[in-house]
């Protein structure tokens, strides 16, 4: 299926377990899920409910054990490493602990998000521009150690977004941010969804940003407990485009 058609993510019969033998523990059980393009989906649940595992499975960071995961039209179950690598390049990941490279400046970290697509002319300008939009125009050449937690998280956001990913995965992206910048980041993700059809799947405990979601999924003991599409959000089944939203 050509990209741009069909849902961003289609999951069927997905189960996942950790450990061996007696210690084997199921963390995901028979998950079925369709996420259309352009949606901003928040994934909630108590710790241990399996939400990070689900996020890493959909984000191609973990091999699928059982069931089917189709991301951007590509089946991940049984996919070869090369296919996983190719799939990851169309995704953006914002990690809980930002995971910036300590030896690289803010600008270089963001450039790494672009360089994965090969050397591009103007990559440095694009990276600097995005950091400027995130209020870090004067911190381009700072190393992560010289940045505050919130600044580091914004660099990580820029790194995830600079390559114009089709799907953004975010694991508690606002945890290190104050109310305003946290909200600003999520609003930016939401705007991207509406303007470019970028899909966002975000794990969060942050109640302050729930109102920005198109859809809220609640996980409990590895199953989807609740799937709530928000009014006013973009929770339709059809692919989203910026022009057909509020």
């Amino acid at each position: 299926m050509a990209p741009g058609l069909g849902p961003a993510i289609r999951v069927a019969g997905l189960s996942h377990a950790f450990g061996e033998g007696e210690a084997r523990r199921k963390v995901l059980q028979d998950i079925a899920l369709d996420i259309p393009r352009g949606q901003l989906v928040i994934l909630m649940g108590a710790s241990g409910s399996g939400k990070t595992t689900l996020l890493t499975l959909l984000g191609c960071l973990r091999a699928v054990q059982e069931g089917s995961v189709v991301v951007l039209g590509r089946e991940l179950a049984g996919a070869a490493e090369a296919e996983m690598v190719a799939a990851r390049r169309r995704l953006g990941f914002i990690f809980q602990a930002h995971n910036l490279h300590e030896s690289l400046t803010a600008l270089q970290n963001v450039q790494m998000g672009l360089a994965v697509h090969g050397p591009l002319p103007g990559a440095e300008v694009a990276a600097a521009h995005l950091l400027g939009l995130l209020g870090l125009g004067d911190r381009l050449h700072h190393l992560p150690a010289q940045l505050s937690g919130g600044q580091k998280q914004r660099v990580a956001v820029a790194r995830a977004l600079v390559g114009n990913p089709d799907i953004v995965f975010a694991d508690e992206p606002t945890a290190a941010l104050d109310r305003e910048s946290g909200r600003a980041v999520v609003e930016m993700l939401r705007r991207l969804g509406h303007e470019r059809g970028t899909t966002t799947l975000m794990v969060t405990h942050d109640n302050r940003i729930l109102e920005l979601a198109d859809r809220i999924l609640t996980l409990e003991d590895g199953r989807i407990l609740q799937d709530e599409t928000r009014a006013g959000g973009a929770g339709a089944k059809a692919p989203r485009r910026g022009w057909d939203v509020s």
């Binding site: 984000g59 960071l61 690598v85 990851r88 390049r89 990941f93 995971n99 490279h101 994965v116 790194r159």
Partner: peptide, 12 residues
Amino acid sequence: REYATFKAIGYG
């Protein structure tokens, strides 16, 4: 950890 991040981004 930093390499893992690069790997997640899509570096082979």
